[in-house]
Design a protein around this nucleic acid. Structure first.
Lengths: 238, 238
DNA sequence: GCAGAAGTTTGCTCCAGAGCAACATCCGGT
DNA sequence: ACCGGATGTTGCTCTGGAGCAAACTTCTGC
């Protein structure tokens, strides 16, 4: 029963799922209906792969709910997180950038709901649906910008700055207001953060302890709340 | 006379300049003629900016001859090289990824010849010229892949491995066979190499000295020849 | 041919942060 | 309630490579 990535062809997907998402926002109800009828809906639990680096890119995806980490795995088995993707974005769009295999692995960070379509529909989507291509390429552009930023950070900043910045980015993308600050909306371990900032979980742990003593953050197991974002910004600038 | 970036509207550009370059290779002579007639040709000396990060992306470019470094400049003024672009590739294609400013600065590494078009022609190119969009997005995809690799390298490898890999990439992209090995085809300083690998020129210098003693490379001022690529590959794996 | 600039080499010191180890804490399953 | 496996904390050591300083070499312009 608890089949790992659960495939569920839901009775009928509601159009409102897509109408407000940028790649589809300019479309008519009828078009969205067609798109949804071609989609496969699937629920993944936390920590499983949606697709894997190097595999043929036979589907593309829209993350409806949850969070996905885009990771690369090195020859020695270490994982490096390249990107976090929040709900409402396309992923696995290798086809858009002329690749026929996925350039990285996508792992769910939380339980997630994902729609997907076979890649052969890609060209149809681009041709038929007004604004789809443009919005997709904006996403690509945004991710290129993020990657650029990551490179600069890795190249020039100290660990403390990188971790501070990573935390800020996470609360920006996925922050949820709680009493006492802004909490990262999904479970994240010290180890996850260390993969995101290219350091060790030990160093992350030490930094968080230090910040907690100074009242900048509040952290429990797999949970981090930022109490003083501004102080983190200052740290992040170095 | 020696006006820094020299603008030269050459008497007439020859069609053969573009016919064998991927974004244009499927086009007819007549179409290429039109494209060339709309282009501005310009020569840049080494070490000048073609366009700058953050400026409005009002033109897109094709590098006909030379090499260009794509760099980002940090708040503290350090430069980080994100990418090297060899002749025959498009650059400054912010428009393709939905951006209206350039996400990075492009600096010539050597004297270079560049064609450019106003960005408002972009949509026309995409619509009218078969294969143009596809090939462009392949380029984007390739660069995304490179950036990903850079991130992984920065996150997991030691300096020696990074420098070895950078050298290998350079000779792959721009290597010229000479007696005794493969030489990087443009002048490159220890400092350039350090910006490419996120280290200091001192460390690069030490590494090169060491490798030279072991017969792996041969380096003069601004010139590096790789004598034993295979040994570098081994070093690069760590 | 000379002066100054640009690029390179090398020695020395120092420290951020990795690596290792040991322990503490929490959580889920039976 | 208990056990075992994740997860988190903290102390200690050690080292890669940054930072600084000084000298050397090669170019460029006058």
């Amino acid at each position: 029963m608890n089949d790992h990535p659960t495939r569920k062809t839901l009775p009928r997907l509601d159009e409102s799922l897509l109408t407000h998402l940028p790649p589809f926002s300019r479309l008519e109800k009828r078009q969205i209906r067609t798109i949804l009828d071609q989609a496969t809906s699937r629920r993944y639990e936390a920590g499983v792969a949606v697709f894997r680096e190097g595999h043929p890119a036979d589907r593309f995806y829209m993350l409806l709910d949850g969070y996905v980490r885009v990771v690369r795995i090195t020859a020695t088995g270490e994982q490096v997180t390249a990107l976090h993707i929040p709900a409402g974005q396309l992923l696995g769009i290798a086809r858009a950038i002329g690749r026929d295999t996925y350039p990285a692995t996508a792992m769910t960070a939380t339980e997630s709901i994902v729609l997907s379509w076979p890649t052969r529909l890609w060209d149809t989507f681009v041709a038929e649906y007004d604004g789809f291509a443009t919005e997709t390429y904006k996403t690509v552009g945004h991710r290129v910008g993020e990657m650029n930023t990551r490179i600069v950070e890795l190249a020039t900043q100290q660990v403390e700055q990188r971790v501070a910045n990573a935390l800020l980015r996470l609360i920006n993308q996925t922050g949820r207001k709680v009493e006492g600050g802004i909490e990262i909306d999904f479970p994240i371990t010290r180890h996850d953060l260390s993969e995101l900032t290219a350091t060790t979980l030990h160093t992350v742990s030490r930094l968080l302890s230090g910040w907690e003593k100074r009242g900048l953050v509040l952290s429990k197991r797999k949970r981090i709340t930022v109490c003083d974002p501004h102080a983190l910004v200052v740290l992040g600038q170095g």
